[in-house]
Computed example of a mutant assay.
Amino acid sequence: MTCACSAIWRWNSMSVTRTKKGLFVTGTDTGVGKTLVTAALALFLRRRGYDVGVMKPVETGVEDPSGLGADGQLLQWAADSGDEIDLICPYRLRAPLAPSLAAEKEGKRIIFGDLLEAAQTLSERHGYLLIEGAGGLMVPLSGAVLLLDLVKALGHPLLTVCRPTLGTINHTLLTMHAARSNDIPLAGYIVNNMPQTPSEAEAQAPNALVEVASGDLLAVLGQVPGTPREQAQALADQLERVPTLHWLFSGLDV
């Protein structure tokens, strides 16, 4: 009997030779703003002269899968990328569901090796590669294969984007624990979308995480208005001013 475990073993044996630097951005759950943060990081690095490649392995909820979805378009713009859309986002699916469910609904299957090959090509083309996941680490890509398996196979440090709201301590620690348990290197975490007038729970969240999390708090980014491009630019501006900028550089290995 062939099980998902043997499939994961075969796929994980397809190692990606990382001749260039990179970072994998995940979130504690969906909707935390990881696409905006990834776009802001692309802008931030480009301002420093880096040639940045971007990749979103799977995007669901794409109205027209013949082109990039909203997330892929934002990343493409932020990196000023001329790469093929099938490299920027190899799997674009209509249904706003978990990747494995969205693919199944369309009669498709997400092939792990395709994602590794796309990442390898982008890594060879660019000095730095930013990869943004879908949902959180435990989101299923295909059957029992999780996004976590892809992160581990790619080998780039993991940056976690989390909320400042009540519950973020549990969600952030669970994400980081899952990564450490699978020998995934941690770049740190960013608290995103902090309100201008935070509640007590929101105001205390960063300090509480610092006390219990083993990773570095790289930045606390405030809420920003505007279009996604305007928001990404505003967040990139905030990254320029964070007092822990040296930690951010260390986490990004640049």
Results as ranks from 00 to 15, higher is better:
T2E: 13
S6C: 10
W9N: 10
R10H: 12
S15C: 00
R18I: 02
T26G: 14
D29A: 12
V32F: 11
A39R: 04
R48Y: 07
V54H: 08
E59T: 04
A70S: 06
D71A: 00
Q73P: 00
L75R: 01
W77V: 02
G82H: 09
D83C: 02
L87E: 03
L87N: 04
R92N: 09
L93T: 06
P96S: 11
F112H: 02
G113Q: 12
D114P: 00
Q120R: 10
T121P: 00
E124W: 01
I131G: 13
G136H: 12
V139T: 15
S142H: 14
L147C: 11
L150Q: 10
G155I: 04
C162Q: 05
T168S: 15
H171K: 06
T172V: 09
T172M: 07
A179G: 08
A187Q: 06
I190S: 07
T197W: 03
E200K: 07
Q204C: 09
Q204I: 01
A205Q: 05
N207Y: 07
N207H: 14
A208Q: 15
S214L: 12
L217M: 14
V220F: 13
P225K: 02
P225Y: 07
G226N: 03
T227V: 08
P228G: 11
E230S: 03
A232G: 10
Q233P: 00
D237K: 05
H246N: 11
L248E: 02
F249K: 08
F249D: 13
S250V: 00
